[in-house]
Amino acid sequence: MRIIHGNPFSEPTHHALDQLLLDRIATGEREPVLRFWYRTAPAVPIGRFQAYENEVAVDYVREHGIDVVRRITGGGAMYVAPGDVITFSLYLPRADVPDDVEASYDVLDAPIVEALQDIGVPARHEPLNDIVHPDGKLGGAAQLRVDHGVLHHVTLSYALDLREMLRVLRIGEEKLSDKAVQSAEQRVERITDHTDATRETIIEAITDAYTERYNNGVGSLTDEELARADELATERFKTDDWNRQR
């Protein structure tokens, strides 16, 4: 498995890379990849089937220029910001992933759970696709399966600004009373609430945990892949046709 860190990219480019690298795994052009995301700006990735206007505070994200990008995977909306979350994607041949969807989330999340436990955060996987702490949700995974490939991407809240999250996502819109804020803060747990470990340390721990299961080496994105991802971002992930389709 190749570990790719790469440069900070815009939100649409990250989603384009997901689509491209999944395709390259499926065709056998690439070995399995573990790619960590580095972002340039706050953003909201929403689930493939979600209603745009149900999930984001439309006026707020427009006024603040926050990118809302529809993922190629199902699942829910998240607020993300550079340095405040840890996002990574696994791109694997379908033959390497259990056929049973529920089992595959468990298997592919296991190294993350192990990494968090190793640094003292009592995390566990909760079906279908959550990673939780006893006090609340730390993050979640989402998958897309194609004929010969599987994308499994994960976002963990490292030090997310939960008040900003409530301004950006519609979960916070109804009543920004202390009570509503409190209950949302209870639902989302941050890694920094439970450890002093830096984001880099956690990324290393996650990499190590996957390394124990796969034979890893360092990889990088080719110029051709970056150019193609830019095209895909322009054709799809920067367009209202895609992002606001539902």
Binding site: F49, N54, I72, G74, L128, L144
Partner: peptide
Amino acid sequence: VTIRGDFFLEPPDAL
């Protein structure tokens, strides 16, 4: 009919 939500569906185009 429009179906929306935070579910998963394979293949996605089947929606």
